[in-house]
Design a protein around this nucleic acid. Structure first.
Lengths: 217, 217
DNA sequence: TAGATTGTTAATCGATTAACAATC
DNA sequence: TAGATTGTTAATCGATTAACAATC
């Protein structure tokens, strides 16, 4: 827990889930070992980058051999915190909130658990999405505190997002998965991961109209 | 059209929609002028970066004055291609596909138009989402060609995504807004903008468990 | 005109890639 | 042992920031 990692660049952190995904795919194909060179060819990055990235966290490989797929998969999972219990809530049970609640991939494959959805709309309060209840937003404080929830998806309109996020941070939320098209300003010990859909679509639009050499990010 | 912009770094392009959003907010507040310094304080970036970014596309400001909000908003919109007709389709009419079709923000505010959704599920074919029909995937080729569609959201399972994307690119799609958790390998004149939700949640999870100084991207 | 702020060049910083000795 | 491939240092590249002359 007292992880004394000297600050690791966010560029590195953002690449970890992609390594994790590729290793998962290799595992599924029963491939047991891989070298940074082979992996780099599949992922279209440099082998140097893979080795540099991984060595921020320790030496997971073996000279002359490469990396054990199963082991590396597990280790990256641990780094990301997927070995821990990751309970979450979704605030805003509209189309997007419900779509997230239904989204298998992270719900089951990676051990996240959606504990409840929240909304102010009386028509939604009480229904269940994938077996998860939609509760009244009034119950947020109590729920967060009682269950010790740390992670919340925010799928509410942008005018409401900053105020409610501020409150939720006070009640104990440490990480916001923010889908509202606005920047949240919260204390330093709270993280925000923005998913600004409209912005990503605009970036795509630029590239469509100015198509050059493709550059998968 | 023959935009002879020497390759502009993708870091710059990704920041443009955020400038656009802030300028839209200023416009809504009837603010008519802004300096790079004021804007930089609101956006928590350096004024230098704003000026450098904008000057990739031209001198939109005026010494001693700053930038005209309305004008800059319009110009960035043009750079992004929002002044053009941006018809799109959504392939995969499940929860996520439907949520996108319902998503006001980009549908109306920025002039995108969802022309149709597509699915293989007979239960979905024929229904309407926000007035937009769900068609049989068999009709994709004809629809793309007839309507000259260039942009497509992919909200289908990952095993099906690469094959269908390949076909769609042959039929004329130039930009994929890819929500499937897999990398698409397509010709150079086709762009892919990935929205890998599970990966963004993992990045958040890492930060929650290793919370340090917050760093809004 | 004087003050403000741009556009742009130069300096710095950080991230990526290359190279290679260590070692399995 | 010989071959392969890591971990890691050094070199390069690119992006960000600082500084300031140009100019409105």
């Amino acid at each position: 827990m007292a992880n004394s990692d000297k600050n690791i660049s966010s560029a590195v952190i953002k690449r970890l889930p992609r390594y994790f995904r590729y290793l998962g795919a290799l595992k599924a194909k029963n491939i047991t070992r891989i070298s940074s060179k082979e992996l780099s060819e599949q992922m279209m990055v440099t082998a140097s980058q893979i080795r540099q990235d991984l060595n921020n966290f320790g030496g997971f490989g073996q000279q002359g051999y490469g990396y054990n797929v199963d082991n590396l998969y597990t280790e990256i999972g641990k780094i990301l915190g997927l070995d821990k219990r990751n309970d979450m809530i979704i605030v805003g049970a509209g189309n997007l909130g419900q779509a997230l609640a239904n989204y298998q991939s992270f719900n089951e494959d990676y051990g996240y658990k959606v504990m409840a959805l929240f909304d102010v709309n009386p028509k939604l309060i009480g229904i269940s999405v994938r077996g998860v209840k939609v509760l009244d937003t009034d119950e947020l404080e109590n729920f967060i505190k009682t269950h010790g929830i740390k992670i919340a998806a925010l799928t509410i309109p942008k005018d409401q997002a900053p105020a409610i996020a501020k409150k939720m941070a006070e009640w104990g939320i440490k990480g916001f998965w923010n889908f509202a098209p606005i920047d949240l300003h919260l204390p330093d010990n709270v993280t925000v991961e923005n998913v600004h859909l409209a912005e990503s679509l605009m970036t795509l639009t630029y590239n469509v109209h100015n198509r050059e050499e493709s550059e998968n990010e």
